[in-house]
Every structure is written in structure tokens, then in C-alpha cells.
């Protein structure tokens, strides 16, 4: 509201989108679907296997990256994660409200299935 008492429409703050911002949207979409802390490393493992044919540990070893620091991976690998996490977040956001089950295990399994399927699709567009 301004000094004359008129309400002003708020413009949401915008900034340049980075891989870190995309990753946060991805992790939030997992939480919003009811995913717990157990599913998170499993999701990361599944997307990595589908995108790169190896696990995270091997990806760091084979590319000379520093484990735990995603920004030390080669640019194409970082881009692949960023694209896949953006698309997977879209898919997971679309599923909010429809993912469910009798147990946490079932919810986690459904989240993994969504990410696995999206990762398979993303892989088709990658040059390797």
C-alpha cells in the first residue's frame, strides 16, 4: 500500500535461474508429494543412473570432480542434471495430490517412478 492508501500489485522478485534454484524446486516437489528423507538419495541415484549409466560416486571419479560439489562436474553433466531436475519437478508438480498410497514406501516408490521415467526421456535428448 502506498502513501495515498492505494494498493499496488506486487511483482514477484525475479532473478537469473541457476542449477541451484532448479534443484531446490525439484527437492520441494519431492516433499510436496509426500516424499521423505529416505527417498531423496534414491531419487538422485535413479536419475544419475538413467542420465549417465553410472552412479554419483563413479561420475565424480570418472570426471575428476570433487565429491559433494556439483559445481565441479563438467558443464554438460551439470546441464543434464539441471534440465532433468527442471522437467522432473514439472512432472512431480503435476502429480501433487494424485500420488498416494497406504504407506510411505508406496509414496516413495511412486515418486521414484516419476523421476525414473522422466530421466529416461531426458536421456534421449542428451548427446552421449
Amino acid at each position: 500500500m502506498d502513501l495515498s492508501g492505494q494498493s499496488q500489485e506486487l511483482t514477484p522478485p525475479r532473478k537469473r535461474v541457476t542449477g541451484a534454484i532448479v534443484l531446490r524446486r525439484f527437492t520441494q516437489s519431492i516433499k510436496d508429494n509426500g516424499g521423505d528423507e529416505q527417498v531423496y538419495p534414491e531419487v538422485i541415484n535413479e536419475e544419475t543412473l538413467e542420465l549417465f549409466d553410472c552412479d554419483v560416486k563413479d561420475l565424480y571419479e570418472q570426471t575428476g570432480g570433487k565429491p559433494g560439489y556439483r559445481d565441479t562436474l563438467p558443464q554438460p553433466a551439470q546441464e543434464a542434471y539441471m534440465v532433468n531436475e527442471s522437467l522432473s519437478a514439472n512432472e512431480l508438480e503435476r502429480h501433487i495430490g494424485s500420488i498416494g498410497g497406504e504407506s510411505q514406501d508406496e509414496v516413495n516408490a511412486q515418486i521414484k517412478a516419476v523421476v525414473r521415467e522422466q530421466s529416461k526421456q531426458t536421456r534421449k535428448w542428451l548427446p552421449w
Binding site: Y40, P41, T48, V56, K57, Y69
Partner: peptide, 26 residues
């Protein structure tokens, strides 16, 4: 071993995997 194998971002170890609270099964 699972956490070691899939640690892409070290900070998620702290804020997700090792963020223990009494409601967690582990």
C-alpha cells in the same frame, strides 16, 4: 554406503539425510 554412493550435493547430507528427528524410523 547408499548415502556415500549417491552424494551429489554435500549440503543435502546435512539438511536431508542426517537431519534426524524423532519421527524418523531410523
Amino acid at each position: 554406503a547408499q548415502l556415500h554412493r549417491s552424494c551429489l550435493d554435500a549440503w543435502t547430507l546435512i539438511t536431508i539425510s542426517f537431519n534426524y528427528h524423532p519421527d524418523r524410523w531410523d
